[in-house]
Design a protein around this nucleic acid. Structure first.
Lengths: 228, 228
DNA sequence: ACCTGAACACCGTTCAAGT
DNA sequence: ACCTGAACACCGTTCAAGT
């Protein structure tokens, strides 16, 4: 692998830092999944012992908090560059879809976000701007508050899918007995050919489905705003 | 603890079974959280060695799959008793709120559900009935399909909250510097007194907020159904 | 057939010791 | 100050051995 880093005299090594530790953890998660992020593995990747990490993060929980915040910062860096002029709805829509694009690069991030108890400063910042856009668009603060709860994880651009309703009943692997037990699903899937290769089993919505659900919510919120 | 079980001659013990293993795991999760469910702990609780469990579940992943399915079965037992006559919207609404009540007894379940890759038969069954109700209520299968994606985890009665937007900026613990950085959140929260004791930090929505979001979606779906 | 003890390969983390 | 090796208390799981 070709690297642009300045040559180091042998035996010299970049010193560890919280930032390097967190970025390395993100890289491991991107490549091998979040379960591959262990203290020993992060240390290895940095050419250090696992125990050395404890000089830069308090413990693994702190490391994961930092990782989440780093991803949220990446989202903020993108969405803060977007144009915010014009009606609230397309502005908010574009912002959420842009956040989604970032999360698609870190597919493990939504699941991790859901497990964090500490507030990520950058997640809070993201929502602050969203509140500002909604309030500026004519929402009462009370309706903004409801909107945040209603959007939930969708505000950051993803929705945690339980399962793809298509996956269980699509062509091959469904046993005949189960197929007979779920006639409505079978009927639905025989009509809705669900062969879109982008449709996955996990949390990752089809872009189309995500936008459908998002527009359902944004349309409804605008109707609540104007009083039906 | 008083128990109604029949007396056993000393040395005798209830034999293990997959069902007993799964129910014990659910009981431990209810009382001590899902992270307390370890093979050794489940074994202990049954008066057996951890290794004995492997005669009844393939491995821990299989155990957790079974636990999820058991909770989904509990949901189906409840919702299958509901009245399904009348317009689709109140029927579906009541069904989802009933499912939610079950999940409130197993607050660890939504998080676990999100991590399962295997399809739980009872989760599939639940959605099959929901598909039937929507189609019977006048939805095309195509719209039903969009609806399932749009409802996502809400169909089973919960929404994974990222964080309570109120928690970060409520009265006490917010540092002054962060407060200054999130003026819109502060403004919102000074207006929306968020002192409802039921409002929690985790995935668990306020009942009111859950219903608001649910009705937003159901209203929107009905509008799509009738063609605006 | 069902259950068990010892063992293995992992975890996160503590601590005393090195430079 | 920053980093390390050995050790500890946990995991899930395998395997040969018991009844």
């Amino acid at each position: 692998m070709v690297t642009a880093e300045p040559a180091l005299t042998p035996g010299q090594r970049l010193p560890l830092s919280r930032e390097r530790v967190l970025r390395t953890a993100v890289a491991i998660a991107d490549e091998h999944g979040i379960e591959a992020v262990t203290m020993r593995r992060v240390g290895d990747e940095l050419g250090a012992e696992a125990m050395s990490l404890y000089h830069h993060v308090a413990n693994k929980n702190d490391l994961l908090d930092g990782v989440v915040d780093l991803v949220a910062q990446e989202i903020n860096d993108v969405v803060d560059g977007l144009d915010t002029s014009g009606p609230w709805q397309p502005v908010v829509r574009a912002r959420i879809l842009a956040a989604r694009q970032v999360l698609l690069r870190h597919r493990w991030a939504p699941g991790l976000l859901a497990t964090r108890s500490a507030l990520s400063p950058h997640v809070v910042l993201y929502h602050d701007r969203l509140v500002g856009l909604l309030h500026g668009g004519g929402f009462s603060y009370d309706l903004v508050h409801h909107a945040l709860h209603a959007l939930g994880s969708r505000a950051l651009g993803f929705s945690q899918e339980l399962f793809d309703p298509g996956a269980g009943a699509s062509a091959g692997p469904l046993p005949a007995e189960l197929a007979a037990a779920v006639p409505s699903l079978v009927a639905m899937l025989s009509e809705v050919a669900h062969d879109d290769p982008g449709a996955t089993l996990g949390w990752c919505d089809d872009q189309t489905e995500f936008e459908f659900g998002l527009d359902l919510l944004l349309d409804g919120l605008d109707r609540r705003r104007t009083g039906s």
